[in-house]
Amino acid sequence: MRPEMTAAPVETGPKSSSERSALARARLLRGLLPALSLVLVLLAIAWLNPRAISYFGFSLMLNLAIPIALATIAQMFVIAGNELDLSIGTFVGFVGCVTATWLKDAPLVGVAILLGSIGVYALLGALIHLRNLPSIVVTLGMSFVWQGLAILILPKPGGKAPDWLLSLMAFKPPFVPFPIIAALLIAAVVHFGLMRTSYGVILRGSGGNAAALSRAGWSLLKTKVVLFALTGLFGVLSGMALIGITTSGDANIGNGYTLLSIAGVILGGGEFVGGRVSPIGAVIGALTLALSASPLLTFMHIPPDWQVAANGAILIIVLAARVLISRRER
C-alpha cells in the first residue's frame, strides 16, 4: 500500500529545474545550429570571394533562395503531420508551367487551375487520412501525375511569366537585397501562423500525439486536410516565384526541389516524426542549401560535374553535426 504522507518534503528528483534548464540549453543550441551552419557557409564565401558579400552579390547568390524557401515551408507542413511529400518538386514544375502559360494568357483560368491544384492537395490529405495510406506512396504516385500534366501543358521549355510577377521578383529595395527581405517575411508569417496561433498548436499536436488530439475532440481529418492544403498553397507560391525569376517555364524545372525541401526542413532542425518543426529553421536551412548549392562550390573552383556530389557531402556534414549535438542532449 502507498504510505500516507503528511509531511511535505520538497521533491528533489532528477529532471528537476536545473536539469531541465540544461535540456533547454541543449535545445537552444540545437535551435541555433541551422543559423550557425548558415554563418559558416557565409564565412567560407566571404573568405573565398570577399566581393560576393555585397548587395549585388547577395542578390545574385540568393537568386533562387525564395522558391527553395517556399518549397521547404511547403514540405515542412506535411512533415509537421508526420507525412512526407515526394511530389513537391514536380508540383512546383507543374505550377511553373501553368504560370508561364495560362496565368499569363488567361489569368482567370490560370488562377482556377492553381486553386484547383491546392484543392487536389487537400483531397490527398483527406484520402491519406481516411484510407490510412502511407503518404510516401500516394505522393510518389502524384509526382508522376504532376510531371505528366506539366509536360502536357508545356511539351518543350518556353512560355513567359506574367508581367506583374516579373516586376515583383525583380523588385530592388534599398540597402537589403530582396531575397533576404522575402526570406524574413516568409519565416515571420509562417512562424506566427504555425508556432504562435492557437490552431497552429493543434496542427503541430497532430504530429505529436494524434490519439490525444482526437480524444480532446479535434478532427484529425481536418488537421490533415489543412496541412496538405497549406503544402499545396506554398507549393503554388514556390512555382510562381521560380517562374518570376527564370521568366519562362520548363516541365522539369522543379524536379530537384523534392529532396532540397526535405533536406531544408531537416537542416532547419525539423524531425521526420513527432511534429517537431521550425519555420524559421526551415527558411534558414533553405538559404544554406541555396548558398552552398552553387555559389560556394563555384568559388571553391569545383567543376559543375562535381557540384551535386559536393552538395551532398555538405549536407551529410551538417546533418551529422546536428545528430552529434542532439545526442549530447540525452
Binding site: 492557437s198 490552431y199 498548436v201 493543434i202 503541430r204 499536436g205 504530429g207 505529436g208 500525439n209 490519439a211 490525444a212 488530439l213 480524444r215 480532446a216 475532440g217 479535434w218 513527432g274 511534429g275 517537431r276
Partner: peptide, 24 residues
C-alpha cells in the same frame, strides 16, 4: 496523452477550444 512536442501551456490549449484569440 500529452503531445510530447508541445509546451505544457500548449497542451492545456488542446483541451480548451475556448483558449484562442489574442493573448491565448
Amino acid at each position: 496523452s500529452l503531445c510530447p512536442n508541445l509546451s505544457i501551456a500548449e497542451n492545456a490549449r488542446i483541451n480548451h477550444p475556448a483558449l484562442r484569440g489574442l493573448g491565448w
